[in-house]
């Protein structure tokens, strides 16, 4: 009997180890390919180079066959699209969370929240389709009207749609945070004659700030790692620009273009995708850990 107990425990432990192995595998596999990439391409070229044209690496007979792998335009593009996304998601998500948790009646909240959470459940490929078919033409037409030329694969299109995709995520995270601020605090403020908005701005938000920062960080981490929306709505050309009306590319877009339909895994071109993937993994890991630490401190404050 005791043996049987031990057996079950051991097999459970084995499963746990296997699950943990996944992280190890990610780091190992992606990291080893990244190391191989950096044995061909100098680290400084990748992180500080401003020219990205991996396609030349295909023609091995040509001079300069190694291609150029300056990832700055890609990181800039990722940054730009995420920034636009957060410019949409942060105010929308925060204000929606505030309205739902403070102003909305219980009846309104009961149906509005699940409806908004549908937005979070829609697969990202659907958002991508929406960006291409609907939003891009609308933005272009709008731009024409006021005399701006907006690229059909502009950072603005991809960022806006991505922002709306992240909004419910930011909303439900910040709503949790706001409702975890003790009610007594807001009553204390309301009872001496503050309006709801003054209470929110001067008491609730300062108290909930760490939680909200971590919600925004998680939103950024989502945006940085989001793939389908940008693959469909953002461009391929690595333009080094901060103009949201132009086309930019992102790390995820490059990973997809470099790897899809390619059966050769030893060229610098495919290895570059792993280097990008590793940077992406590292970035989101930092964001997540930062968010976790902040929110943990915050929880301790009120528990």
């Amino acid at each position: 009997m005791a043996k049987f107990e031990e057996l079950i425990k051991a097999s459970l432990l084995a499963c746990t180890m296997l699950s943990v192995l996944v992280t190890g595998l990610i780091v190992l596999s992606v990291f080893s390919e990244t190391l191989r990439f950096f044995s061909h391409v100098p680290l400084a070229d990748f992180f500080f180079g401003t020219e990205w044209s991996p396609q030349t690496a295909m023609r091995t007979d040509q001079a300069g066959s190694s291609g150029t792998f300056g990832a700055v335009p890609i990181f800039m593009g990722t940054f730009l699209v995420t920034l636009i996304a957060m410019a949409v998601a942060a105010p929308l998500g925060l204000y929606a969370a505030i309205f739902l948790s403070v102003y909305a009646s219980a009846g309104f909240r009961a149906w509005a929240k699940p409806v908004l959470e549908i937005l979070a459940g829609v697969p990202s490929v659907v958002y991508g389709y929406f960006a291409v078919i609907t939003l891009a033409p609308i933005l272009r037409a709008g731009g024409d009207m006021i005399g701006l030329s907006i690229a059909s694969e502009s950072a603005l299109t991809a960022g806006t749609v991505m922002g709306i995709m992240i909004t419910p995520y930011v909303m439900s995270l910040s709503e949790d945070v706001i409702s975890s601020v003790p009610k007594s605090l807001s009553f204390g403020s309301l009872a001496i004659g503050a309006t709801q908005s003054e209470t929110i701005k001067k008491v609730i938000l300062p108290a909930a700030l760490p939680g909200i920062v971590s919600a925004l960080l998680l939103g950024v981490s989502r945006g940085v790692g989001e793939t389908m929306v940008v693959v469909m709505a953002a461009g391929l050309a690595a333009n080094l620009t901060l103009n949201p009306l132009e086309s930019v590319t992102t790390a995820t877009v490059q990973i997809v273009t470099l790897l899809v339909g390619d059966h050769e895994f030893d060229s610098d071109k495919t290895l570059a995708a792993f280097a990008l993937g590793f940077s992406l993994f590292f970035m989101t890991l930092l964001l997540n850990i930062a968010a976790l630490i902040i929110v943990k401190r915050y929880r301790e404050q009120y528990d």
């Binding site: 992606v30 989001e226 792993f274 993937g277 992406l280 997540n288 850990i289």
Partner: peptide, 28 residues
């Protein structure tokens, strides 16, 4: 450590799992 690990894993971009599949399942 396992807990932090699993929480972080939940927030890793999905495309990274694709890279993992590519290099481990397919190549190895």
């Amino acid at each position: 450590f396992i807990e932090i690990n699993i929480n972080n894993l939940a927030a890793v971009p999905s495309i990274i799992f694709g890279l993992l599949g590519l290099s481990i399942y397919l190549n190895i």
